[in-house]
């Protein structure tokens, strides 16, 4: 009986990559919106935007580490 190859790790890596890409798009939007607010004198948004952006980067780094870990197996 033929056994199908295990695609689990590949799907997990592709899923993680897709999630990183989505988070990156959100970060790009956040950066442009923050810059726009800063230019119009609304400085209060800079702190929450920076915190959210750093949090998203943390998630991206974690997902990147996951991809590296799964890829090594």
């Amino acid at each position: 009986m033929m056994r199908s190859p295990n695609h689990g790790p590949l799907v997990a890596i592709d899923g993680a990559l897709a999630l990183i890409a989505i988070l990156l798009i959100v970060q790009m939007w956040l950066l442009s919106a923050t810059l726009e607010a800063f230019m119009s004198g609304r400085h209060a948004v800079a702190l929450p935007a920076a915190l959210v952006s750093i949090g998203l980067t943390g998630v991206c780094v974690a997902l990147g580490a996951f991809v590296r870990k799964v890829g090594r197996r």
């Binding site: 890596i13 990559l17 990156l24 950066l31 810059l35 800063f38 935007a49 920076a50 991206c60 991809v67």
Partner: peptide
């Protein structure tokens, strides 16, 4: 895929650095 993930992650770090720069400027 690993290289691509690294590239995306570094871009994400750059975005966060941009937001941190705006915070410092404000």
């Amino acid at each position: 895929r690993r290289q691509f993930a690294k590239f995306l992650t570094l871009t994400s770090v750059a975005m966060a650095a941009g937001n941190a720069w705006i915070l410092a400027k404000s």
